[in-house]
Design a protein around this nucleic acid. Structure first.
Length: 268
DNA sequence: ATGGTGGCTTAGCCA
């Protein structure tokens, strides 16, 4: 008996500050699983009670003080993936994973927060950019060796790979998030065995963004967005995809994140 | 070409 499953990925930019927005999201979209990035909360301070009160009893998270942090919130039991690599030798809380149960069998779920990479797109001049490139290379190698089946990968990958994933391809080619060294590496990661589930629904020649900078007076009018958030699935799960929504209106919520949630629906 | 805003933690870092 097939069963629907609604998954949301969202860079929440501080879980504790934006708990009311998380509640809005749950009320409006009724997801089964939420993958968060930039929770910015150390594990001992994770607001477990508040999240459980929203109906998410099954939690797996990894956070630290001030920066980064990822979390998987689920209505149904999950099995956390232990022994995931400590990327780039840093314990900086950029990846969690779990196995979820569906009527058609287990599915492996990965939630990533890729380093933003600073401002200067030169690995020699900018260690943050070097870290970003190395992170993606390392993760790619890991997936290359593992070749997972029935897997979903989501998160803020901090790279907009396609021409129409940014408001101006030409103007952003030298801007971190859309430079060829980044987009080539992201494509290699994707090609370890995934399909871009967002572009499965929205053709690549159509503009599609998930992030609008705080630094624009009127984000909606200027509409200088980028698609930094992604949902990938292994080809065996493509037939289970039933829909995808970028929750653009979330950028106008009170005290919004600069990223909006992405919803993906499955029928398992 | 520059600086614009927001979050965490309190002046400076990171996005």
């Amino acid at each position: 008996m097939a069963q629907p499953m609604r998954l949301v990925t969202w860079n929440i930019n501080s879980l504790r500050l934006r708990l009311p927005r998380l509640e809005d999201l749950v009320t409006e979209l009724a997801p089964d699983i939420i993958c968060l990035q930039e929770t910015k909360v150390p594990d001992p301070l994770f607001p477990e009670d508040a999240v459980r009160a929203l109906g998410f009893e099954h939690l797996h998270y990894k956070g630290m003080k001030s920066y980064n942090g990822v979390a998987i919130l689920s209505r149904h039991p999950i099995t956390p993936l232990d022994n995931l690599p400590d990327w780039h030798g840093k314990e900086d809380c950029r990846h969690v994973g779990a196995v979820i149960t569906t009527p058609s069998g287990p599915v492996e779920l990965h939630d990533f927060y890729v380093p933003a990479g600073g401002d200067i797109p030169d690995p020699d001049a900018n260690p943050k950019f070097a870290h970003k490139l190395a992170f993606v290379e390392e993760v790619t190698e890991w997936f290359e060796e593992r070749k997972p089946a029935r897997a979903i990968l989501v998160g803020d990958l901090n790279i907009a790979p396609l021409e129409h994933d940014v408001w101006s391809h030409k103007q952003l080619l030298k801007i971190v998030s859309h430079t060829p060294p980044e987009t080539e590496r992201l494509n290699r990661w994707l090609e370890t065995g995934f399909v871009d589930a967002m572009r499965h629904f929205i053709p690549p020649q159509e503009k599609l963004y998930t992030w609008w900078s705080y630094r624009n007076r009127d984000w909606e009018k200027s509409n200088r967005g980028r698609r930094l958030d992604h949902v990938w699935v292994t080809p065996d799960l493509v037939p289970s995809l039933t829909g995808m929504t970028v929750v653009r209106e979330a950028r106008n919520w009170t005290s919004p994140s600069d990223h909006v949630p992405v919803v993906v629906d499955f029928q398992f």
